[in-house]
Design a protein around this nucleic acid. Structure first.
Lengths: 101, 101
DNA sequence: ATTTCTTATCGTAAATATACGATAGGTTTT
DNA sequence: AAAACCTATCGTATATTTACGATAAGAAAT
């Protein structure tokens, strides 16, 4: 990006919505979230069995979803249990709802 | 992407939702759509005045939104009038709604 | 016919995203 | 203590995205 120096300023909620959208902008992540919705929660290993992707790739997608705040991980030794982050899920839901009118 | 040969198969609606999300995954495009929502419609030139971005960059974002089906352009010589594509907008709205429960 | 206006497209540079294998860092189990 | 198990992270290759200026392509105005 040859952008000229400092980047554009957007309103906070515009940035926030774009960030959520970005987290959803890959079919694997949508599928993970759908799976998580059905199951309520699951472990990384479960997903590795479900999707024909390398374990490292799944882990990377989970990281992005976590960074976006849509999921959260809890250590259930020796595994990690991932669940929807209900609070942020609601926020995202509300933002998309408002955006679409 | 070193993906092994043919890419993964996702359900149709998973792909579709990811595609819509991708179109929304940039603050400029969110802002354009918000602007379009308020104004109902507008011309490329209007946006060039509003955003501190090159005309070609705006045009590129509009192209992506059009490809995603969220907007449509109508020739009003010598300008082009862009509006929300209400039909697909509703579809996208419904898909996000369903996704978030 | 030439100039002007508006927008799309081309070419390109830099940043980001996506995938993989390999490896590291924890726990648990043996 | 060693082996086995689960997951994150690192390094890396390739693809895609994002931005720009320059140029093309169309209609309208002079």
């Amino acid at each position: 990006m040859k952008r000229s120096l400092e980047s554009i300023e957007y309103k906070e909620d515009t940035e926030a919505l774009a960030k959520f959208a970005k987290a959803l902008a890959h079919p694997t992540r949508i599928a993970i979230l759908k799976h998580l919705g059905k199951q309520s929660c699951c472990f990384t290993g479960d997903l590795v069995d479900v999707f024909p992707l390398a374990q490292s790739t799944i882990s990377q997608h989970l990281k992005e979803l976590k960074n976006a705040g849509l999921i959260q991980g809890e250590l259930k030794s020796p595994k990690i249990k991932y669940c929807i982050n209900q609070e942020n899920w609601s926020i995202a839901k509300g933002m998309f709802q408002e955006f679409f009118d």
